[in-house]
């Protein structure tokens, strides 16, 4: 075995310095946001980086339990929109992916290509007609009006990933299910769905994160502050408290927490989903 040479130790040190620097570049702004929420405006101006002295709890307090109660409502709205989007994508997408993967029928391939086309259309292209469309469907300023377009644009990716997966489920399982008397829906619910849990989880988490962070669609659809999702809430709060940066930073910090929690809990799925295209022969 090799011993650690001085050259290796040198490289190692360089690597730690490099990682440490990148760490600081990411950590300092986040730290400033967290601590800024605990400062008075005066402290913030004099000492943007130092620890708060004294800690002022009223900003976080006001946002969480005080009169500025928009935070909880917006959190709830984001949750509602996110879960709604995931539910629609998962149910509708699983059905479609199953049909495209497992049932032979005329035009199966045509439908497949039709959905595949969706990957080519960025949301931005559709956003103005979407506005007109939602207006004529009376869905402007409703959460459904955010959920449906988000789900529709998430659908192609879901169908592509899941179809590929379902295709790989061995035919023997289908035969066994047929012998046991299952019909297509029985097979779908008792065999395909349980086997697809990992990929369903991956797509669900990615869809949730995308919805959670989405700003474009809610900005287009929602007008009433009571219906705002968190990213819109952040913009709105900033508009209202233009000079009170300590308030804004407190709100910002609180708004970061859910995404960080999702990340910590679901890191495995997020990374798997985003890198699924990175490995190929």
């Amino acid at each position: 075995m090799k011993t650690i040479s001085s050259e290796n130790r040198f490289y190692n040190t360089i690597q730690y310095i490099f990682c440490g620097l990148v760490f600081l570049i990411i950590a300092v702004p986040i730290y400033i946001s967290i601590m800024g929420g605990f400062k008075s405006v005066g402290q913030l101006r004099a000492q943007p980086v130092a620890l708060p002295d004294p800690f002022v709890w009223s900003q976080y307090g006001d946002i969480l339990v005080g009169q500025m109660g928009s935070f909880w409502l917006e959190l709830l709205n984001s949750l509602l929109v996110g879960i709604g989007t995931v539910a629609v994508v998962v149910v509708v997408g699983t059905f479609a992916a199953y049909a495209l993967a497992r049932i032979r029928f005329k035009f199966n391939n045509v439908f497949f290509i039709y959905f595949w086309l969706g990957l080519l259309f960025p949301l931005a292209v559709a956003i103005l007609p979407l506005y007109v469309q939602l207006r004529s469907l009376n869905l402007l300023d409703t959460h459904i009006g955010v959920i449906l377009p988000q789900a529709a644009f998430g659908l192609p990716m879901m169908i592509m990933l899941l179809r590929g997966f379902i295709k790989q489920i061995p035919h023997e399982l289908e035969e066994a299910a047929a012998i046991d008397g299952y019909d297509r829906f029985g097979f779908l619910f008792t065999i395909v769905v349980p086997l697809s849990t990992p990929i369903l989880a991956t797509v669900s988490v990615l869809t949730l994160v995308t919805s959670w962070n989405n700003f474009f669609t809610p900005l287009l659809v929602l007008n009433t502050q009571k219906k705002f999702t968190l990213p819109m809430g952040v913009m709105d709060f900033m508009g209202e408290h233009a000079a009170d940066w300590n308030m804004i930073l407190a709100f910002l910090t609180l708004a970061m927490i859910p995404a960080v929690v999702i990340y910590i809990l679901c890191q495995k799925y997020i990374v798997a989903g985003l890198t699924s295209g990175a490995i190929k022969g």
Binding site: V88, G118, A126, P129, L130, A151, L155, P156
Partner: peptide
């Protein structure tokens, strides 16, 4: 869903 909110708007 896909036709209403993706294809038609495009």
């Amino acid at each position: 869903l896909f036709t209403t909110f993706v294809i038609i708007p495009v």
